[in-house]
């Protein structure tokens, strides 16, 4: 067991930075802003060492990252359409034309997830981690457990419906 606080913190970053990034990205939908949120989250954690007392590390980090991302959101909402387009290209995500050509199902679905409203998208992304149940997600987002479940069902229904429509269109074209 390591006792060096910096080593402990470095281990935390190694362990959870991807998770924190996903939470931030689910709110902000912008790679650079999501990285800024990750930096801010870990800097805050480095200063207050709050994760050491947390019962559920991921739930604690999800809440911290979500709050910071929500605080950053007004800044990202002011971003122009051109900047968003440039970010999509620089982040390595395929453009709609590329997606159409490659018929990349995952990229399609990522676009559909991005198009979901915030209140459905963030619980859906958090629920993709096995360690987080509806209660943990509710704690992180400040929602009742029942509300989280309802939103998860609605998100999945919406995505399924859109995917079915896309499938019908592809079959029709074929």
């Amino acid at each position: 067991m390591t006792t060096d606080p910096d080593a402990e913190f470095a281990a935390l970053v190694e362990r959870q930075s991807r998770f924190v990034y996903k939470v931030a990205y689910a709110v902000l939908r912008h790679t650079h802003d999501a990285e800024d949120a990750v930096q801010e989250t870990f800097l805050k954690l480095y200063r207050n060492r709050g994760w050491q007392q947390a019962e559920n590390e991921r739930a604690f980090l999800a809440r911290a990252a979500w709050r910071i991302a929500v605080d950053l959101k007004p800044r990202t909402e002011r971003r122009t359409a051109e900047e968003l387009e440039a970010d999509v290209l620089s982040s390595g995500a395929p453009s709609p034309e590329e997606m159409a050509l490659a018929e990349n199902a995952h990229a399609h679905i990522h676009r559909l997830i991005d198009a979901l409203p915030d209140e459905l998208r963030v619980p859906l992304v958090l629920a993709s981690f096995e360690e987080l149940n509806s209660r943990d997600i509710g704690t992180a987002l400040g929602l009742p457990e029942g509300t989280v479940r309802t939103r998860l069902q609605r998100a999945r229904q919406l995505l399924r419906a859109k995917l079915e429509r896309l499938h019908v269109m592809e079959v029709g074209r074929g």
């Binding site: 982040s91 199902a105 990522h110 993709s128």
Partner: peptide
């Protein structure tokens, strides 16, 4: 298909851990 897509959704650019530690 949805679960697979969600697991690969919002993948950070490689080297995030190093950038975070450097920034902090």
């Amino acid at each position: 298909l949805l679960d697979e897509s969600l697991s690969s959704y919002a993948e950070p650019v490689h080297g995030l851990e190093e950038r975070v530690l450097r920034g902090v």
